[in-house]
Design a protein around this nucleic acid. Structure first.
Lengths: 352, 352
DNA sequence: ATATGTATTGCAAACGATTGCGGTGTCGAT
DNA sequence: ATCGACACCGCAATCGTTTGCAATACATAT
């Protein structure tokens, strides 16, 4: 009987009275092994439910068939979509994924990198945390010759493949859409400006205003990137007297917070104030009225990032220039921004 | 210079002209090694950014400090919360997590188990897929002496630790709450009845009706567990003439689909029809009106499941009886079920 | 009988880290 | 000079798997 735990090649060799190398070759169908021995080995293997120890194989071949993922927070619809895309591609290619969550914290991100290097993963996918200012740990990945691909949030100054959205363009589109509805006083509830996406979306917003022939009003562009902050901002704006006729939120939760407050204050959406969000979470369809928003295609971003990584892993010898893939975001127009009679409440992406 | 890839103890030994064993001991602060040598080794280690190869360590010690997770679909707020809880506890305990998604498919679940066993993970967390009828692959985990803990969805007939919700009680509570609002014709939009949670929630619903002194009406209990199906069901019920004055949805998306349709049909919520959901996703707060729902405490379920698993891993020698931990769900009352003037729109869990 | 070929299998080293045990060198004590 | 004590370090085996090379056995050809 086997001592405990998993069956090894050595166990099977002992049982059959042959050498471990014979068992190994038999399992691989090596022609040197006689048909009889092969049969014996294979039968025993299924009977004992032998599973090769990939840890040992990894040591031998200096590759683990494992990729690491560092993600800021998984409890975001967008990121969970990305992970799903990553897992899908990895699974089909025979890779397993080690999952780390930075919780938007720098120290954890540094530790996550260490862990993944210690595990000798074949490649790493990273979306940089909000807190990260120093990128040495990410440079270390490349110094260790480990392929690296950024998704959604890249690190400035680090040359690596990346898969990102055209945030700026998309933000511009959203702003132009609001202007196209005849809105003149378009506000922006922005994400923190130390974040790349925060800057990009604000820049796109300003682009849009200019293109629409509107003059930006600093009082209408405030930093507020959460449900609660948006609520607070609406109250403040109402008190201050300078009120917008449209709001472009840096993310969906912000936009929805704004809508909730607007409704409570008695405003009609979109007639009096139109609203759009960003990053098409399922929230957008569900909000009442349903929210016009930008679909970032998270799942696709995950699959593309992983394909890019695997490509680089599997051509580890050849060097080739880094790639930047832009996953174009789409503006999904719903009821929070257009007062068309044709659009039913609850309609949007999905028929109802 | 190092050949390529990561630095090893051998590399450092060669550079310093000592034996690998000396380097190993120096790094561990072994007293046999002179202070001078220790200093030399440690300095070189930081200079070269040495990271111990945990794959090799895993082989040596027959433990990988790695746990595996099999989850049906990560793009669910509940499951992403669970994962977050799992990662949190694992990270703090120095374990890394290998993440697999079954996509609710049996064959993938079987493969996921194989992968995790091949990786010699120290323990496995599983939430069984909807499709799974045969549980042999899960039994195999235990046969391989790998600790196993189920969360949310357990496999019948397999003796293992599990962390689950008190679905039935919670469903009963939700139903009683609706009855408490004076509702008499309470409908249930149920999950598939081959699912354990589907059965439990329906049973709880019936318990609630009985406790409230209401007689169940089969016409009011239908299978509908998605946004779209709920919309469809509302139309059908209206056409058929038998209309409820309250709806208990098997999950939040279903309840919200129902609400959207009700509003479109001109019903007032909760005055004419009250609604409750299940599994407190962020959707519940966001819906308009905000949705009364059952909070399943996903994050806590993740942390508890992982703690249970680690406990079993770290006492692998001693056998002790399996545990079933029930994470009690809470009914969070919001505006979709009570017409209190005191509750502001948008209020709920979080202040606004 | 000797040489050559072929089929089948085992030996041993390697991947990176760890550890029991043995070896070397230096010191003071006798 | 001899011995023991002690500090310090290296050898070699181990974890599970793979693979180049050597070894064995047998058959065939010369």
């Amino acid at each position: 009987m086997i001592k405990g735990g998993q069956v090894t090649i050595k166990d099977m060799a002992r049982i059959l009275g042959v050498a471990p190398s014979t068992v190994s070759r038999a399992l691989q169908g090596h022609p040197d092994i006689s048909a009889e021995t092969r049969r014996l080995v294979n039968e025993l293997a299924v009977r004992l439910k032998y599973q090769p120890n990939v840890v040992a194989q990894g040591l031998k071949f200096r590759r683990s068939n494992t990729i690491g993922v560092i993600i800021p927070e998984i409890v975001h619809y967008f990121f969970s979509q990305v992970i799903s895309g990553i897992e899908e591609v990895a699974y089909k290619a025979g890779y397993t994924v080690i999952f780390c969550q930075s919780n938007e914290r720098y120290d954890r991100e540094v530790n996550n990198v260490k862990t993944l290097i210690a595990h000798r993963v074949d490649g790493i996918l990273v979306s940089v945390s909000k807190e990260t200012r120093d990128f040495q740990h990410l440079a270390d990945i490349l110094e260790n010759q480990i392929p690296l691909v950024f998704f959604d949030r890249a690190a400035p100054g680090i040359t690596a493949d990346m898969v990102v959205t055209n945030d700026r363009e998309a933000a511009c589109m959203a702003t132009l859409h609001l202007a196209g509805q005849g809105k003149k006083r378009i506000a922006h509830f922005a994400a923190p400006q130390n974040l790349f996406i925060g800057m990009e979306r604000k820049a796109g917003y300003l682009d849009g205003l200019v293109l629409a022939g509107l003059t930006p009003d600093p009082a209408l562009c405030v930093e507020a990137d959460s449900f609660e902050k948006a609520c607070h901002e609406i109250s403040r704006m109402k008190a201050s007297g300078t009120f917008p006729d449209a709001i472009f939120g840096a993310n969906d939760l912000t936009a929805i917070g704004a809508m909730k407050s607007l409704l409570r204050e008695g405003f009609r959406i979109p007639e009096e104030v139109a609203v759009t969000g960003f990053s098409d979470s399922r929230f957008a369809e569900i909000a009442e009225p349903s929210l016009t928003s930008v679909d970032q295609h998270g799942f696709e971003m995950g699959t593309l990032a992983t394909q890019t990584l695997l490509k680089r892993i599997e051509s580890a010898d050849r060097e080739y220039p880094c790639d930047t893939i832009i996953v174009k975001a789409d503006l999904i127009i719903r009821n929070s921004s257009v007062c068309s009679k044709g659009v039913e409440p609850g309609a949007g992406h999905q028929a109802c």
